[in-house]
């Protein structure tokens, strides 16, 4: 698809700015999302191709404003919802529960 992910040759993104002495992960949640790829594909049986396509389905503005591991999270959410394993409503309810001090 002619999506925003197809970045080759685009102008206007500015300098690259590599981070000196960059850690492998920048937050605990990034580690959990990273580990969700292998653990989730093991039971849900998705391919890396389906995984990438779910990332490409992000709305363009959101794609550019979110980070690499946020793209991964979006992909897992989409693929698990399509399979009926974790619905959006179920996840949103759990997020609310955590916000209110639950687990």
């Amino acid at each position: 698809m002619n999506g925003i992910h197809d970045l080759g040759g685009m102008h206007g993104f500015g300098p690259i700015n590599p981070e000196p002495d960059e850690p492998v992960f920048h937050a605990e949640w990034e580690k959990r999302v990273f580990g969700l790829f292998a653990t989730t594909s093991a039971f849900a049986g998705f391919s890396v191709d389906e995984f990438r396509h779910a990332i490409e389905n992000l709305p363009p503005a959101e794609y550019l404003e979110t980070s690499y591991y946020e793209h991964w999270l979006h992909s897992f959410e989409e693929m698990l919802a399509i399979r009926g394993i974790v619905t959006k409503a179920e996840l949103d309810a759990r997020v609310d529960q955590i916000r209110q001090g639950g687990q």
Partner: peptide, 16 residues
């Protein structure tokens, strides 16, 4: 929070 919620659900379902 969203990541924590997703992981918790998948653990409870015995999937991960």
């Amino acid at each position: 929070i969203r990541v924590r919620a997703l992981e918790a659900i998948l653990i409870e379902k015995g999937l991960i």
